[in-house]
Amino acid sequence: MRTEAIDPPGVQWLRVSPKYVTVRLVEWAIGNLVMVAILSLPLVFVQLGWWRWPPLWLAIAVPAVMLVLALWRLVLIPRQVRAIGYAERDDDLLIRRGIFFQRTMVVPYGRMQYVDVSVGPVERGLGLCTLKLHTASAGTSAYLPGLPAGEGARLREQLSARGEARLAGL
């Protein structure tokens, strides 16, 4: 995995499962296609002659722009999934994500209050899970999607054990 400028040097990133692309595709389809379909309704009504107001160019332009944006997001999905990485260091967990807006995050084990593992319907079908770490700060939105179930369970146990060993107050 390529190391970006904002990543700490010498970190070996672990990637999430490539199957997570499918999860993202389903989410994309539900979100974006429904949106485009709804925005296309005025075009249909105008074509049928029921509506007079939105001029034809506007009725075409709005869903067209949305469609282009949706396709753009679709193209990005595989790269976004590849950009998600995590690394277990001795005292903290590093999580990175993003291509355009990159974010590298460090969560010390001693700061973890609890660890969540959640599985959605699509994820279950693919044998994936999402790991979420909680610290005392609401700003820590540290989650790792698309982990294989076994790896998720291992990571959860590992993090809990390490967190217990290094537990500090607040």
Partner: peptide, 22 residues
């Protein structure tokens, strides 16, 4: 608690990054 380095495309162009503390 935890920290995150963040960098958008414009910031990358200028070689800077934001560091957010939680």
């Amino acid at each position: 608690q935890s920290m995150a380095l963040q960098q958008g495309p414009l910031a990358r162009r200028f070689g800077v990054a934001d560091l957010v503390f939680h």
